[in-house]
């Protein structure tokens, strides 16, 4: 989509892709573990035959889905864009299903940074923006950039409109 509104330019850092993929691996490991436990129980307690068949079918279906999951993470990461100026926060997500959001900074109520164990490992932080309409998050930025961005948004968001 072409607009005269400047398209958001900033991308997510490379490390955030790594974090996303590690997250996927952990998720997949948990799913496979659940399957393993179910198969084990099936074997131990001699559940009816059809349960084993159903489990097998589910496993066969889920393997390609898990692989697509990695592709999805990569595509999402590549297409994530954000931009901030004095007046607006712009977010863009998705390649096939593209979503653009335009949020006036005056409507922002709070900004915070968050960090989980995976993000900490790569010295990344998520920046979360809360507005009257809901919450938005920029999933991972290097520590320094995240803080800088938080301060920048907070400074812009100080401006209030009469309506608020």
């Amino acid at each position: 989509m072409q607009t005269q509104v400047k398209e958001p330019q900033h991308k997510l850092p490379k490390e955030s892709l790594r974090v996303g993929l590690i997250g996927d691996v952990i998720f997949d490991a948990v799913i496979l573990l659940i399957f393993a436990v179910l198969f084990g129980l099936d074997f131990l307690f001699e559940w009816p035959d059809w349960i084993g068949t159903v489990l097998l079918i589910l496993l066969i279906i889920s393997v390609p889905l898990l692989i697509i999951g990695y592709l999805g993470t990569i595509i999402d990461h590549r297409n994530w864009r954000y931009d901030i100026d004095e007046e607006y926060v712009q977010l863009r997500q998705g390649a096939w299903f593209q979503k653009d959001q335009l949020i006036p900074v005056t409507k922002i109520q709070s900004v915070e940074t968050k960090q989980g164990p995976l993000l900490r490992r790569y010295k990344l932080r998520a920046v979360e923006i809360e507005t009257m309409a809901g919450e938005y998050s920029i999933p991972a930025l290097p520590d320094k950039e995240a803080y800088a961005l938080r301060d920048e948004i907070a400074a812009y968001a100080k401006a209030k409109e009469e309506d608020d």
Binding site: W96, F97, K99, T131, A133
Partner: peptide, 27 residues
Amino acid sequence: NKMIEVARNQNPLQRWLKLATIESINR
């Protein structure tokens, strides 16, 4: 000035047909 946010969405079929979905958010 009463709208607090907007969004614009496009799915692959809409892109092919040069269409899009828009959304406005109000308090």
